[in-house]
Amino acid sequence: MSTMSAPLKLLELPLPVQPIAPSAANLRQALLTNREQTLTQLYQRTFPMVRRHVQRHGGSEQDAQDVFHDALVVFYEKTVRGTLHLTAAPSTYLVGVCRNLWQREVERRRRQPQTELTAEDAARVVAEADAPEPRESPPVLEFVERLGAKCRSVLLAFYYFQQPLEQIAAEHAYAGIRSATVQKFKCLERLRRAVRAAWFPNENR
């Protein structure tokens, strides 16, 4: 049995929000209340600059998109957790992050240039593909994807997108915070049961 004496550090969970600069606070509010529109505006303002930079430095349109999405994911997570400290416009900040990410990617590619597939490599890949894979329990992520749409939406809204329970209640037609909280735990329980049933079929907990 595992011991859990020390408190766990869970950066991914909705922690109490730290004080943040007004512009970051406004951005946080906008992302929480209207994610799609806010992200679209950020995208329109910023992506052309990122694409220009990446293409001028040896990358493709797809490279620019990949780098930009990586930066936006981190940007979103930091903003909604209140750990983003903006000293410039969000688009300037994002372009800076993308420049750094692309610089790192260029250096990584320089260190590990793509090599052509030799006949031996191809034979090894085929042999590996033919070998029977050890049967493992499916990862928990698969069970999240298999949850019903509403349960999945409630859990992601709370645990990842960090939306307040009032908003979750309104968007999912629950009577109020109390009802949304109960539904959230019911969905969490459903997820846990699905995982347990697949991982420990003989256990009856």
Binding site: L13, V140, V144, L155, L156, Y159, L188, L191
Partner: peptide, 12 residues
């Protein structure tokens, strides 16, 4: 439960 939260983070 911690593993469930990690998976939810990944799914998000």
């Amino acid at each position: 439960q911690l593993r469930l939260y990690q998976a939810l983070h990944e799914a998000g």
